[in-house]
C-alpha cells in the first residue's frame, strides 16, 4: 500500500450471505488519492460487490479493505456507516434519488449522517444550490420534487449529493448507463469539472470502454477480481 493510496484491497475474499454460489477474490487493488479510475467490467463481474466492500456496507470474509488508511474491519458497524458518510460520495446507476423528497432533501441527506462533512459547508443549502448550478441544473431546482426531474437531471442531482461537503472519494456505479450519448458526455464533463475542483478521488464502474480516455487509469475487472461461481 503506497503512501498516497486512498483505497486498498489486499487478499480479499467475500461470499454473499445466503448466496453460496457466488464469491469474489481480490488479490491487490489500490487507488491513489486524487486519481480517477475507471473499472471496466461486464454484468456479473463483481463490480457492485467490490463497491459494497469499499463502502463498507459488507465486510470481507478474509483480507483487508482500507479506505483513507483505515482498515474497515477495525470499525464497529455504526462507526463504519459514519465513516462511509464522511469519506465517500456515491452515485448509482439510476433511481439515485428518494423520489418523494425535494432536490435539497436528497442533496443534504448524507450530511445528516456525516457531521464533519456538514461542518465543511458553511451554508449547506446555498452550497447545494451552487453545486446544482455548476452541474447545469436550473436555478431554484433545489425546491423541486426529485421525481419531477428528468433522468439526466436526477443523475446530476446525484453528483451534487455525492460531492456536497467535499468527501475525499467519489464512487460512481455506471452513472451514465441510463443517459443518451450527448447527455452522457455533458454529464461526465460536468462531473469531472466538479471532481477536479474538489480534488476528490473518483472510482467509476462502467462497461463502456469509450469512456477510458477521460480517466487517469483504466482497470479491467477480470484483472483484479476473480469471480467464483458454483452450481447451486
Amino acid at each position: 500500500m503506497g503512501a498516497d493510496s486512498i483505497i486498498n484491497l489486499k487478499d480479499v475474499r467475500f461470499r454473499w450471505p445466503g448466496r453460496a454460489s457466488f464469491s469474489i477474490a481480490v488479490a491487490d487493488f489500490t487507488v491513489q488519492a486524487g486519481e480517477s479510475v475507471l473499472l471496466l467490467g461486464e454484468s456479473g463481474s463483481g463490480k457492485s460487490t467490490l463497491l459494497s466492500l469499499i463502502c463498507g456496507t459488507v465486510l470481507a470474509d478474509a483480507g483487508t479493505v482500507s479506505v483513507g488508511g483505515t482498515d474497515l474491519k477495525s470499525l464497529t458497524g455504526g462507526s463504519r456507516d459514519r465513516f462511509r458518510a464522511e469519506q465517500i460520495g456515491v452515485i448509482f446507476q439510476q433511481f439515485n434519488l428518494l423520489p418523494f423528497g425535494s432536490v435539497a432533501d436528497n442533496i443534504l441527506l448524507p450530511l445528516r449522517f456525516a457531521p464533519d462533512r456538514k461542518s465543511r459547508c458553511s451554508d449547506p443549502r446555498r452550497e447545494a444550490e451552487a453545486l446544482c448550478l455548476a452541474l447545469g441544473l436550473p436555478k431554484g431546482v433545489t425546491g423541486a420534487k426529485a421525481a419531477t426531474l428528468s433522468v439526466g437531471q436526477q443523475q446530476r442531482v446525484a453528483v451534487a449529493r455525492a460531492l456536497i461537503g467535499q468527501p475525499p472519494i467519489l464512487i460512481a456505479d455506471e452513472p451514465t448507463s441510463s443517459l443518451d450519448e450527448t447527455a452522457q458526455s455533458s454529464f461526465l464533463d460536468l462531473m469531472f469539472d466538479q471532481v477536479r475542483a474538489q480534488g476528490s478521488t473518483l472510482l467509476m464502474v462502467s462497461h463502456d470502454p469509450r469512456l477510458a480516455d477521460r480517466f487517469d487509469r483504466v482497470v479491467r475487472m477480470p484483472d483484479i477480481v476473480t469471480v467464483e461461481r458454483q452450481a447451486a
Binding site: 456496507t57 455504526g78 456507516d81 458518510a85 448509482f92 433511481f95 434519488l97 428518494l98 445528516r112
Partner: peptide
C-alpha cells in the same frame, strides 16, 4: 429496498 440502499449508501446505519 432501493430507497433503503440509498439511505445506506449515504451513511445510514441498519439501525437508522
Amino acid at each position: 429496498r432501493r430507497e433503503m440502499a440509498i439511505f445506506r449508501a449515504m451513511g445510514a446505519s441498519p439501525v437508522a
